[in-house]
Design a protein around this nucleic acid. Structure first.
Length: 376
RNA sequence: GGGAGAGUUCCCGAGCGGCCAAAGGGAGCAGACUGUAAAUCUGCCGUCAACGACUUCGGUGGUUCGAAUCCACCCUCUCCCA
């Protein structure tokens, strides 16, 4: 259940209560596609970096180790050791990212497994069954994340199909939640807005799904190649049609600046692989901007990654040391950097919440919106 | 002392008369990354006044229109026999 606590312009401060705990919003969800944050972080580490929600992936866990196995072992919470809220993405993004390996039909999508090539069929029902087996707190509707650019006609047909798929998802999850052996009878369902870069299709689609009384509403299919101004415009245009009393999630976004802009336009939840992936590649986020620790200029830099940061990595580790660990290909380099970047994202959202609480979000926004995405 | 083999650009290592500034790795330097097929991928990597020029393949001479590639001697290293 979403509760709106305070508003500054379109920006919302709220909280979202689930059976696995309450999420303070705006909030960031930490991506653990295969049940773990890449970079050797355990569920225990998630507490240290201020994680509120863990995000796992339906397709990936279905391929390996198999949702039946996870279910048999008590579901994702027990399996991973993370007791807080878990959101499972539906596999819709893989319809986009595994484009070369799949075929879309009305019933669903056939994938060639990226692991062993075997054929995998996933439609709305299958996606819900898998997510039910996984026992996540929040299930995402199975959608088609459309590539960009795409033809108007194709996008319109795809949106209509995504609506039909959403109806099937909702019906299937209701059925599963009533089952006797269900892992989480309270499993929630979020719908996903699509429409590419066509504002009229976006609005029409949003209006349609807004009437379906879902537990939350996501905007998908953004940050897939379009200019960021276009993404901001689409969020602004679609936002008025999103239910005010439901939580709103912008999928897969983004840079710290993107997040600030989206919060300002009324978004509550985010997830992104950028902090973890970039960390593994030596790119670190700080309140002063972005640094690349691989650069020679940090060879003798005794400062921590970010002097104003209180994460475990910034306590007692210098840039010079972590740079050395990268060059020596020590796993600790990635671990320290992933912890820092995720701590940074979770803390950034915490700062945004504090600003909203204090009525100073606009000031915070203008101070940091350009600084944070800058290379220094 | 005798015999066999090897010395290539920062390192390893291909090349064995022109298509060679010299394959491929590695190292180094820089860039990308947005619901993760990503500890990945891309670019640069002899020098310069740079769509061209110059200097490189242990050293010195030589053969040839042309040599990293062939010949002679020398230096260094490795292995085998004494």
């Amino acid at each position: 259940m979403y509760e709106l606590l305070k508003q500054e312009g379109a920006a919302r401060r709220g909280q979202f209560t689930t059976v696995h705990g309450t999420v303070q919003t705006p909030g960031f969800m930490n991506v653990a596609t295969c049940g773990a944050i890449k970079g050797a972080l355990s569920a225990y580490d998630l507490q240290a970096i201020g994680c509120q929600v863990m995000l796992c992936n339906t397709y990936h866990l279905h391929v390996r180790p198999g949702d039946a196995l996870v279910g048999e072992l008590g579901g994702l919470h027990r399996f991973t050791g993370w007791q807080g809220p878990i959101l499972t993405d539906s596999g819709g993004f893989q319809v986009f990212s595994l484009a070369g390996l799949r075929k879309i039909r009305e019933e669903g999508v056939t994938f060639s497994s990226h692991v062993d090539g075997r054929r995998i069929f996933m439609g709305p029902e299958e996606s819900m069954q898998i997510q039910s087996n996984l026992g996540s707190t929040i299930a995402m509707a199975f959608d088609e994340c459309i590539e960009n650019p795409a033809e108007y006609h194709y996008v319109r047909e795809s949106c209509l199909r995504t609506v039909r798929w959403l109806e099937r998802c909702k019906a299937e999850l209701q059925r599963l939640n009533c089952g006797e052996d269900t892992r989480n009878p309270n499993q929630l369902l979020f719908g996903i807005n699509q429409g590419g870069t066509y504002v009229d299709l976006r609005m029409e689609h949003m209006k349609t799904i807004a009437e379906m009384d879902l537990d939350g509403y996501a905007i998908g299919g953004l940050a897939v190649g379009e200019p960021k101004e276009e993404m901001y415009r689409i969020i602004s245009e679609v936002e008025p049609y999103m239910p005010k009393r439901k939580i709103r999630y912008l999928m897969g976004v983004g840079t710290p600046g993107n997040i600030l802009e989206a919060v300002r336009r009324g978004v509550d939840l985010f997830d992104c692989v950028m902090p973890s992936r970039n960390a593994r590649h030596g790119h670190l986020f700080t309140m002063q901007g972005i640094i690349n620790l691989n650069n020679k200029k940090y060879e003798r830099d005794e400062q921590p990654i970010d002097s104003s940061c209180s994460c475990p990595s910034c306590r007692g580790h210098s840039r010079a040391y972590i740079r050395h660990l990268f060059k020596a290909q020590e796993m600790l380099a990635m671990r320290l950097c992933v912890m820092h970047n995720l701590h940074f994202y979770n803390t950034l959202l915490e700062k945004i919440r504090a600003a909203l609480d204090g009525g100073s979000f606009e000031a915070f926004y203008s101070q940091y919106v350009t600084v944070l995405d800058q290379r220094i």
